[in-house]
């Protein structure tokens, strides 16, 4: 079977769902963060393949921005995790329930 857009999208989809599963199931904050990165990458893959099969470069530009934002996000997020860890001595979501009143 010849590889087309459909195949790329299927890979992207599965990767996205893997990331989602990780976010909801894993309890280590760092791993949750990595799963988030997986989801972002899945979106990137979908965009690049759309760009390729529609013969337009705009999708790639968008991916470029997403990578940039993701880098910024990782920096800030990890800083937050470090600050949180200093205070609570834990990177485990079940120990971080201060959002409950």
């Amino acid at each position: 079977m010849h590889v087309g857009l459909q195949h790329y999208l299927a890979v992207s989809m599965i990767l996205f769902c893997l990331g989602l599963l990780g976010v909801i199931l894993r309890r280590n904050l760092l791993v949750i963060y990595m799963s988030l990165e997986l989801m972002l990458n899945a979106a990137n893959l979908a965009l690049v393949s759309f760009s390729r099969f529609n013969d337009k470069l705009d999708g790639q530009v968008l991916v470029f921005f997403i990578i940039t934002v993701a880098a910024a996000e990782v920096a800030v997020g990890l800083a937050l995790i470090v600050a949180l860890f200093r205070k609570r001595q834990s990177a485990h979501v079940e120990d971080l329930t201060s959002m409950k009143l």
Partner: peptide
């Protein structure tokens, strides 16, 4: 519903 658990919120969000 307000458990304070991050993942519950993520689940509801999804």
């Amino acid at each position: 519903l307000q458990t304070g658990n991050l993942q519950t919120y993520a689940f509801l969000f999804v």
